[in-house]
């Protein structure tokens, strides 16, 4: 009976959503969006503060925002304050996981139910290096290619998960991760305050933005994305460590 009510409620909600989508003048039809009506067009043209004309990859220099990846330019420049809040949410959830699962230093890591042999240990170390380098690459090219601090940081954390799963002796230095996380988060705020001091508002880009498409371009965006990558990587690695350790049961 309860399941029937749940089914009826969910389907009613779905039907309401579908009805609100069809023939709605205020909601653009799928695929026929006019970007000129939206604020996004200014992000694409990079003309929020002034009109630089057409942006050409590899030619235009010193626009208001130098990132070739427009999503990155929104995430780390135009809406950087949003991202600061998002990083804070991730920090608080990592803190909550640590508070719930961590109990002093009496915990030991979760035992594997097999004995990893020599090949597995050495092979996972080699793969660890490759995954780590891919993560660093994704972070460094966040303003040019798809990716950036969040996926790159997750890749770094996944390389640490690989070591946990392939080696029964492995433990990360959780204190080091906590330190890295705190330092990276603080530097993000410090960069924001520098924007307030050297330019006019919090988190403003105060460095020259360079030519669109160069590796060293886009002002503070690569710096902020490296900090975000370090922070996300260390936070998720800390969460993984918290889940893979268990309290030592003292009977």
């Amino acid at each position: 009976m309860k399941n029937l009510i749940a089914f009826v409620l969910s389907v009613a909600l779905g039907v309401l959503m579908v009805l609100s989508l069809t023939n709605n003048d205020w909601f653009a039809q799928f695929g026929y969006v006019d970007l000129a009506d939206r604020v996004s067009q200014s992000y694409i043209d990079k003309d929020v503060t002034g009109n630089p004309g057409e942006i050409i990859f590899g030619i235009t220099s010193n626009p208001e925002n130098g990132a070739a990846n427009i999503v990155t330019s929104i995430v780390v420049d135009y809406r950087s304050f949003d991202t600061l809040g998002e990083v804070t949410v991730l920090f608080i959830s990592a803190l909550g996981v640590a508070l719930l699962l961590n109990s002093q230093d009496k915990n030991k890591r979760l035992a594997l139910n097999f004995k990893p042999n020599f090949m597995l240990r050495v092979g996972s170390r080699a793969l660890f290096a490759i995954i780590l380098m891919t993560g660093v690459y994704v972070i460094l090219h966040g303003h040019l290619t798809p990716g950036g601090g969040f996926p790159g940081g997750t890749m770094i954390a996944s390389s640490i998960l690989l070591l946990y799963l392939a080696d029964d002796q492995f433990r990360t230095k959780v204190k080091g991760f906590k330190l890295l996380e705190g330092v990276a988060g603080s530097f993000y705020v410090i960069i924001g305050l520098l924007g307030l001091l050297l330019a006019t508002y919090f988190l403003q880009n105060f460095l020259p933005t360079g030519t669109v498409g160069d590796l060293l371009s886009a002002g503070v965006i690569p710096i902020v994305y490296i900090l975000i990558g370090l922070k996300v990587g260390s936070e998720i690695a800390g969460i993984i460590d918290n889940f893979l350790t268990e309290e030592e049961v003292s009977l």
Binding site: I56, F57, I59, A68, I70, V71, T145, P146, V212
Partner: peptide, 10 residues
């Protein structure tokens, strides 16, 4: 929405 060498114009 990524400017590249092939899709180079805004």
């Amino acid at each position: 929405p990524i400017l590249t060498s092939t899709n180079s114009s805004s």
